[in-house]
């Protein structure tokens, strides 16, 4: 890790660098994706206040747990299939 002599003064860093850091370490609940209930509506991707839902070729992939804060918005907005949620929140460490 950088020492004080090498750090940018005033903690002014290059923009858009959060990608390089683990910012999700303090999450208390983690979203869990249940693929069989997913209808690929991508509501979770739209609503996530971070960018912790990965999408490739128009289809959602796994959560990016290095950046997901566990807010649960995706789980709440997820319509799921036939009343069965495709995202549930699970307590970390359990």
């Amino acid at each position: 890790m950088k020492g004080w002599k090498d750090l940018e003064i005033g903690a002014i860093t290059k923009a858009g660098s959060a990608d390089e850091y683990n910012t999700g370490s303090w999450r208390a609940f983690r979203p869990q994706w249940i693929e069989e209930n997913c209808i690929q509506c991508l509501f979770c991707w739209i609503y996530c206040p971070d960018s912790a839902v990965t999408v490739k070729d128009g289809k959602r992939g796994e959560f990016d747990y290095l950046h997901c804060k566990g807010c649960g918005i995706c789980a709440r907005e997820c319509p799921g299939k036939k009343g069965k949620k495709a995202i549930v929140m699970v307590e970390e460490g359990k």
Binding site: M1, A11, I12, T13, A15, G16, S17
Partner: peptide, 12 residues
């Protein structure tokens, strides 16, 4: 572009 005011925790 630069970032001002990032959260700096005990490690830095």
């Amino acid at each position: 572009p630069v970032t001002y005011g990032p959260l700096v925790l005990p490690d830095f």
